[in-house]
Design a protein around this nucleic acid. Structure first.
Lengths: 226, 226
DNA sequence: GCTTGAATCAAACGTTCGTTTGAATTGTAC
DNA sequence: GTACAATTCAAACGAACGTTTGATTCAAGC
């Protein structure tokens, strides 16, 4: 029902408490939102004292920020690493559109799978945080994402030379939105489509997402008469 | 700073209060989220007594639901009406992909513009509500949207016969996500791209969105070697 | 003008929240 | 064992919340 502290190698005593708090906060924030996840519920689930949250993180907001930063930072590092790699391998022409989209979408899904809950909680929080009213949380997420967007914008610009800078920015925006909503909205997808869609098969989901996004990003400016 | 009650034709006394509450709630919920918009802040902004919210709507949640339903119902009616019209005009082949996407995306943007604030508040609430933790609010929105999705699914199926039912459902899901995130995320877009993008030009935004979505929806299943 | 029901109002209800406090406990180094 | 700092703990704080209450005001109908 609740997290179990598996490792007996609790060298520093405070570390397991901190970890338990992050785990519990991640699950409860994903389930009920930041405002709906009270510190009392979080600390109870973590098996710690109520005051532990403020002792280790200073405030509830700082705890929420830590929940996001814990996983997002490695994801963005991975994204930028893969981008460097692809650009080095592709020479002057730059990586293909499919490659770029795969790099942008892949890590957030793949990283998620390594998490104990399949990354659902974290993905849900991230997808929501982008449009969240709380400015602190939003900027905490966008701060991490801004550099990646800047880098990818240049890369996409080479892969899609026929697009004006403004149109390209909008399309990147659409891409981010599609991704965010997809990883945030499994609850909604299941509610609408019932058992018709398998939201657990992440591999084919990434494939579908990449196909869709490549089509959208490379759509012609003039609507063709089919 | 706050809403002014313009019409002197307040025939029934309770109506202006109800309207003021809906307006104030819409603005504050868009700005701070459902949990962050307290009844005290809403009633103060509306210029009514604190008890008026519970008197007229029963509870805070019912007020939030009313905020969504007030505009969403007409939007979906308009969507379905346009779909009927297009299907009647297109004969056996059915409406084109561009037509369908335009019908799906257009009303939510165009309706928004008729609202006093340009529909930003309402759009923001709607886009957020899809991935919101509160199940009541989410289902209130999805209940309205479900029939439209069912109808459009059949229409898209005719326009995109080469797609498997499963792939089509996912792509519709991506489309809804792109749209929701676009109308919900103006704050985020401005934060990331600063003054580079004009989020107020709704006409060209709809055009860009339709182009992107048509490209994504009609993307080939096999990635082409360009 | 009196009655009636709807609407408004000030005030308070009880609960829950994030945070703080100060004592108790634990782990660690000498 | 003693000293010291890090951590845990029970308890309480004040503030803000949604909701309820009972009196008061208002607009009509007769």
């Amino acid at each position: 029902m609740t997290e179990t502290i598996s490792d007996p190698i609790d060298t520093k005593q405070g570390l397991v408490t901190k970890q338990s708090l992050l785990d519990a906060a991640e699950a409860l924030i994903a389930e009920r939102g930041v405002a709906g996840a009270s510190l009392r519920a979080i600390t109870t689930r973590a098996g710690t004292n109520l005051a532990a949250a403020n002792y280790h993180f200073g405030s509830k907001q700082a705890l929420a920020r830590a929940v996001i930063a814990r996983h997002l930072q490695p994801i963005n590092s991975e994204r930028l690493r893969l981008l460097d790699e692809a650009e080095a391998a592709s020479g002057d022409a730059g990586p293909s559109l499919e490659t770029l989209v795969g790099i942008f979408v892949g890590p957030v899904v793949r990283f998620g799978r390594e998490l104990p809950d399949g990354g659902r909680h974290f993905a849900q929080i991230c997808g929501r945080a982008m449009t969240q009213p709380d400015p602190m949380l939003r900027e905490s997420l966008l701060g991490e994402l801004a550099e990646a967007i800047r880098r990818f914008r240049a890369a996409f610009s080479r892969a899609l030379p026929e697009l004006s800078p403004e149109e390209l920015l909008w399309r990147i925006q659409f891409m981010v939105g599609t991704m965010a909503h997809t990883i945030a909205g499994s609850q909604m997808i299941e509610a609408v489509h019932g058992d018709e869609l398998d939201t657990r098969d992440l591999d084919s989901l990434v494939d579908r997402l990449v196909r869709f996004l490549c089509g959208g990003l490379s759509a012609p400016m003039e609507v063709s008469q089919s």
